[in-house]
Design a protein around this nucleic acid. Structure first.
Lengths: 278, 278
DNA sequence: GCCGCTCGTCCAGCATACTGAACAGATGGC
DNA sequence: GCCATCTGTTCAGTATGCTGGACGAGCGGC
């Protein structure tokens, strides 16, 4: 099947000064997409359009440091990624406080609350608080979703300066759509972002999953250069009643205030603020 | 301060065929250990005993693929690690089933249950079920702990063939100790492992944290070459009563049976077995 | 405000990691 | 049982990534 040789042009191969590292990143991306496949050097070389022996050398080095593991003759993601991923999450103060803060939310503690960070036009989900609801529709930690159809994403995008927003939307024509409600045009997105700015929170009205709504607020980064964060509450549309939603919005703003700047918020003078416990 | 130049000899620099990748792994390790520091190329070069310009090139490549991010002029772990770490965890069937299985445990669902994988003589924690207990002493996902003082580790070690066990303990003199109860000699460990084999479960009796006990059972890997997994239940020693512990052990064995081989276990004929829900 | 320190970046030359083809083993099909 | 085709691995030659030193910028201090 000669047509299957779809060389992933990998346009960003703008000769880096450490090509082996750049290629290692491409290999990890491919392995992340092909779960349960364990592709070997040949398969990887075909998908990436790179020399086979080069791939083999890099894979062996990756296996030695634990970033990938050998499955028979092929490769899969390795356990050091769990270690480093955990270390990355632990290095973000907002993630640490998120878990404690969620538990003390009045209404929101029963729902699914998530924390994500904006990266270009995508959100990476960093933390999740599982409420009592049996909804299993929440995305796993580390998952990426388009910012344009999620409450977290729209809350984060709305916080950007207009110039920065223009830059990111410059060469974008169609937005990715997951449901019939997904915003598909830049114009519709801009109008929605303006609404977000005015009312102070974002809403995903069945734009990601049918029957599910999300409310989101922005959380600023603490260090310069850190993309804006955002928190959201996810619930079945049937549960989003006129009396519950305002309470959830309040909880989100409370959460955002606490995660924004720990010094400015009322916090217990004691060393530990895990809330009420017997 | 000339004495601070502690070159991390990094003995395993047995010239790999892709040295840039091996060094990238070393850089990630250093960054994982130095949270909130954001060391620059010079600092990294000093700690690793490697040329400064080489480190700078590799760091730039790592930043381009998102494995590290720039903090001012220095570097820290990047958000792609959360993505890849999540993908790694999602690729392990046991992790997926662990979360569902824990919720249906009779007694154990109220306690802290963890899943870990053995790697040489250390355990990497992959998943955690938070019970109702307010104990905050559980380790985060991705954390590594010595196998010799944890219930998960001893359960996993006890499952190894004697020859393999001998190999791993060959050049080990003193075991790492966290508390006064930690096993410190290979002889004491071997005796404990024999006990684990006879009674079918492992116990960490305040060997990791004072006042906290753990019970652990082994969970075999499904694919060849996968290190053994193990599940554990953590609780305050005061809660480990004579009536609760046998129930918890039963739950652990149930959990192990379900995670061992999904085909051999009674499972609902429907597509989804998330247990009782209204 | 000047100096000494250390930072991150740049550049030329050499050693070396990458390339491409040939190799041997495993596998499936007519 | 044989061939065709795949796999992963090996090897020599060369392009090229790595090295060490030099450069300019940014601080902190007697």
């Amino acid at each position: 099947m000669p047509e299957a040789i779809q060389i992933r042009d990998e346009a960003t191969e703008t000769d880096s000064l450490a090509p082996a590292v750049t290629r290692a990143g491409a290999i990890l991306d491919v392995l992340a997409d092909s779960a349960g496949e364990a592709p070997g050097p040949s398969e990887l070389a075909r998908r990436l359009g790179l020399p086979k022996s080069s791939i083999a050398n890099i894979c062996n080095a990756l296996a030695e440091i634990g970033l990938v593991r050998r499955i028979g003759t092929g490769f899969a993601l390795g356990r050091k990624l769990a270690e480093l991923g955990g270390a990355y999450l632990a290095s973000i103060d907002q993630v640490q406080e998120f878990y404690d803060a969620c538990r003390s939310l009045v209404t929101g503690s029963e729902e699914t609350v998530q924390l994500a960070v904006l990266d270009d036009l995508e959100m990476t989900y960093l933390a999740r608080h599982d409420g009592r609801q049996p909804v299993r529709l929440t995305s796993q930690i580390g998952r990426r979703l388009p910012a344009t159809i999620t409450a977290t994403g729209k809350a984060a995008l709305a916080s950007l300066p207009d110039a920065e927003l223009d830059r990111r939307l410059a060469d974008v024509r169609d937005l990715p759509a997951f449901t019939a409600n997904s915003l598909t045009t830049v114009a519709a997105l801009r109008a929605d972002l303006e609404l977000v700015r005015r009312r102070g929170y974002a809403m995903d009205d069945e734009e990601t999953v049918e029957g599910v709504v999300c409310y989101g607020v922005m959380i600023p980064g603490r260090r310069p250069g850190e993309g804006p964060y955002a928190a959201s509450i996810t619930l079945l549309k049937a549960r989003a009643t006129e009396e519950r939603v305002p309470l959830l919005i309040d909880d989100l703003h409370r959460l955002a205030r606490r995660l924004s700047d720990p010094l400015r918020v009322d916090q217990p003078p004691s060393r530990d603020g895990t809330g009420p416990s017997p």
